[in-house]
Write a protein that binds this DNA or RNA. Structure first.
Length: 774
DNA sequence: ACTGAGACTTAGTACAGTACTC
DNA sequence: GAGTACTGTACTAAGTCTCAGT
């Protein structure tokens, strides 16, 4: 069995490894580079030169480092010997106890049988399994796991996919208008126009690229369908408002349906979907994920996607390839249709597949997240990440050393690894001209990194999903020097910083340290490691609610590390403003009561100066604003109560209250207003006769508590407004960490995982005990 | 050695469903 | 109990990474 000692004995990284061989003159190096990555890059000029985007071949960086070290040699990254098909499968089993020396996961760990039935026996009796749902539910793959190997399943049977319903034409009175004229669209074109009409009020519909792409595709569909009564040539003359209104009306109708109607509809839908929801995987009933074929519509690309708004075509059975066991029943295609193809490939995990017309890529129907296949791969992912802890020290040591390597390529490798490790950047592969311009580590360009000596770096770029990555950070001095070199002229905006490396090269390098190590593993590792460290800091005290808050705070650190964002909800700023107002009012109340105390006992001010320090914290203007808000609130509540009382009286058929009564009640508020006005001048609030210093001080205390709570609430709201916790919880934080926290701190798992997550992470919930560590 | 196809994970958003407030 | 705010789920786009074919 391999042990932790491995960590220290892994082969050194390229460039720092023993033999300084294969020295190649620089000239040759350049050729290599050119024939490699650089040639792939499309030239700016080819697309009209609108954006200062990818330049042609990045200029060769001067053969000098900061220290004028010549770039000496090229070393082709060592080819990791791989032997995928050696057929030897290693059985692994999630164990209750952590292996002391840590090797688990994909390395060979013998699975103690512990009397568990081998999987094979079970799957040979699908019939029996099928009868007993309990048995299905209870199957614990994590106690009999075969994680390695090419083959993904033994047997697979399913009922195919659900196609979206055929298009139903609009009622004849609902039309598109062009230049004020109602248009008789052929049904195909009407459908496409409808797609746009449905989005009329969204940002997409206002996006010129979206409009242009939509219009092009719409015109083509219209032409192919034989045209219409009007000559449509100008998008701006199209009026979708009638169509839009119709869709809104339908939505409204749906909303207005009674509870029972909705329920019945839902039941019917579920009954129809039932057969597609499950499949037979190795003889066990398991969930299918997305069994619905994506409906046609307009492509909603994120960020500045050149293809956004294009028509995503309807998918027919003739486009769909099925995958299932040989010899099992092939689901019938919809009447009058046939499948594109039926495959029997057990090395993949999809049940159906089709090609999508926008980006020319594949879409898959897969197993659900609760399935054993997905669960195993999730488990494997976390074990790989966990395994990194035995190698990370060596890796860090090596790249820190290699930051000074004379060879430019090696410096870039080291610097990229550093950024990926420390700032959790993604690998950043090449992207095409017909995609949104987003970057990751290897595709960072000149303009994405600003250097501020001595060692401050500002990253500012759009990452995956066009989410902005903005960070001002201090970096390792050598990394700083390197970035400066990578930016040296003749490089200029538009040029790649890392022009001599690519994600595959990085990954190849990583594999020399550890099997399965790739760039993305660093994100998983650092995320889970961070979570573990944060959880370790939480004291086991307080209420469940308090513990949950602290857990979420730990979760948030991870989310921030991974730059997981969400758009601020429309109501957010209003909600924040509300809390701010509330806080100011509380503050005012507190000050007011303290002033009352001073009226009762003026000499206290000298005795306890600290306590009364804050009584002048609010300006007159602020106080006035609070007064107005408070008074307005009171008036509003008086009016509301008046109205409610009247409604009640009216229901009881009794005479209503007179308007004069309302005036009478409102005048009480006016009296208060006068009182406040006076108070604003004198700074002496009226003190109730019954008040004592004791009582008032208690009131101050209560207010202070409320202020603390509200401040906390506000901070939480603001901190969370742009941070999405769920992504890291679903993808990056080893679920066993959460399970351990739950067990150790006595927080019900329901408070930490939603139902779906509990199903997804069942393996973790049932396998981790409270001593488990990442 | 390079490239693109293919397959899988990761990601934010829209919207439905639920909880909370007045 | 209606209206509103928040939460969870469904959806599908956008990444990463491997491998086969040239």
């Amino acid at each position: 069995m391999t042990s932790v000692a491995d960590g220290g004995t892994v082969p050194a990284a390229n460039g720092t490894s023993s033999v300084p061989n294969e020295d190649v003159p620089l000239a040759e190096l350049n050729t290599k580079i050119k024939s490699g990555k650089a040639t792939k890059r499309k030239t700016q000029d080819s697309n009209g030169g609108s954006k200062p985007k990818r330049k042609a071949t990045a200029k060769v960086v001067k053969d000098e480092s900061d220290d004028d070290v010549p770039l000496a040699s090229v070393q082709s990254p060592e080819k990791p010997k791989k032997n995928r098909k050696d057929g030897s499968k290693s059985k692994t089993k999630i164990k209750k106890e952590d292996v002391p020396n840590g090797k688990a996961g994909s390395e060979d760990v013998k699975s103690e049988s512990e009397g568990k039935k081998p999987k094979k026996e079970e799957s040979e009796q699908p019939g029996r399994q099928g009868e007993d749902e309990e048995a299905d539910e209870a199957f614990k793959w994590w106690e009999a796991m075969d994680v390695d190997g090419e083959q993904k399943w033994e047997s697979l049977e399913h009922n195919g996919v659900i196609f979206p319903p055929e298009y139903e034409p609009l009622p004849s009175h609902v039309k598109l208008y062009y230049d004020g004229v109602p248009v008789d669209l052929p049904i195909e074109a009407e459908e496409v126009a409808g797609f746009f009409a449905a989005l009329l009020e969204t940002d997409h519909a206002k996006n010129p690229t979206f409009q242009k792409n939509f219009f092009e595709d719409f015109c083509k569909v219209l032409k192919d369908a034989g045209g219409c009564n009007v000559n449509i040539i100008d998008f701006n003359k199209m009026d979708f408002s009638k169509m839009h209104a119709y869709f809104e009306m339908l939505k409204e109708q749906k909303k207005m349906m009674s509870r029972d109607e909705k329920k019945a509809l839902k039941l019917e839908r579920e009954k129809f979907e039932e057969p597609y929801k499950f499949c037979l995987l190795n003889g066990r009933r398991e969930q299918v994920g997305n069994f619905k074929i994506e409906p046609p519509g307009l492509f909603r690309g994120r960020g500045a996607h050149p293809k956004t708004g294009k028509l995503k075509k309807r998918v027919y059975p003739e486009d769909v390839t099925l995958n299932l066991s040989k010899g099992v029943k092939i689901p019938d295609p919809p009447a009058g249709h046939k499948w594109a193809e039926v495959r029997h490939d057990n090395t993949v995990t999809w049940l159906a597949m089709w090609k999508e017309n926008i980006t020319d890529s594949f879409k898959y129907v897969r197993f659900g997240n609760t399935s054993s296949v997905k669960g195993m791969s999730d488990f494997k992912k976390f074990e790989t990440a966990r395994n990194l802890k035995y190698h990370i020290d060596a890796i860090r040591k090596d790249y820190n050393k290699m930051l000074k390597d004379p060879l430019m390529q090696n410096r870039q490798m080291a610097t990229a690894t550093y950024l990926i490790d420390i700032f959790a950047l993604r690998a950043g592969g090449e992207k095409g001209e017909d995609e949104a311009d987003t970057v990751g580590c290897c595709s960072l360009r000149y303009e994405h990194v600003t250097l501020k000596p001595p060692n401050k770096v500002i990253f500012d770029f759009l990452g995956k999903d066009s989410i902005r990555f903005y960070q001002e950070v201090e970096v390792d001095p050598q990394a700083f020097k390197n970035l400066r070199i990578f930016k040296k002229p003749p490089k200029q905006p538009g040029d790649d910083l890392f022009d001599r490396i690519s994600p595959p090269m990085l990954n190849k390098q990583f594999q020399t340290y550890m099997k399965g190590l790739t760039a993305k593993v660093f994100r998983t590792y650092n995320a889970s490691k961070t979570m573990q460290d944060q959880l370790d800091l939480i004291p086991n005290e307080g209420t469940v609610a308090e513990k949950v808050v602290k857990f979420n705070a730990a979760n948030r650190t991870v989310a921030i590390l991974c730059n997981h964002q969400r758009t601020i909800s429309k109501t957010h700023s209003a909600a924040v403003e509300k809390i701010h107002d509330k806080l100011r009012e509380l503050q005012w109340q507190k000050i007011r009561i303290k002033r009352m105390i001073l009226q009762l006992e003026p000499n206290l001010k000298k005795k306890e100066p600290k306590y009364f320090e804050e009584i002048d914290d609010l300006t007159k203007e602020e106080i006035k604003a609070v007064h107005e808000a408070v008074l307005e609130k009171q008036r509003e509540s008086v009016r509301r109560r008046f109205q409610r009382e009247n409604e009640k009286l009216s229901a009881e058929k009794k005479p209503l209250l007179e308007e004069s009564e309302l005036k009478e009640r409102l005048s009480k508020v006016d009296e208060l207003a006068e009182e406040y006005k006076e108070e604003l001048k004198t700074n002496k609030p009226v003190v109730k006769k019954s008040a004592t210093v004791e009582k008032l001080k208690t009131q101050v205390e209560t207010l202070e508590n409320r202020i603390t709570n509200t401040t906390f609430q506000l901070k939480d709201k603001e901190d969370n407004s742009e941070v999405s916790l769920s992504t890291s919880k679903i993808n990056y934080i080893d679920p066993r960490l959460t399970v351990v926290f739950s067990k150790k701190f006595g927080v019900p798992i329901e408070k930490l995982f939603t139902k779906t997550l509990r199903d997804k992470f069942k393996w973790a919930i049932e396998s981790a005990d409270e001593n488990w560590r990442f």
